[in-house]
Amino acid sequence: MADETLDASGLNCPLPILKTKKALSKMDTGKILDVISTDAGSVKDIEAFCNQTGNKLISTVEDGGKYVFTIEKA
């Protein structure tokens, strides 16, 4: 179960990434953030973001054009 949830539905690049960054910056290490996005580009982008920032992408779930990314704050 996530500690925080960010709904970035309807937002396009780069807003899902920027909002994810903002949400994570308010959280403590080890906490879990769920990001909901409808932007197909965010699948690659969230992965790249986690890769570069050291946060851990635990899972990506797609459900009918809606994506849920579960991220553990580093």
Partner: peptide
């Protein structure tokens, strides 16, 4: 602005 804001988001 897109590249810059994404850049800072990525540390």
């Amino acid at each position: 602005f897109i590249i810059a804001s994404t850049g800072v988001a990525m540390d």
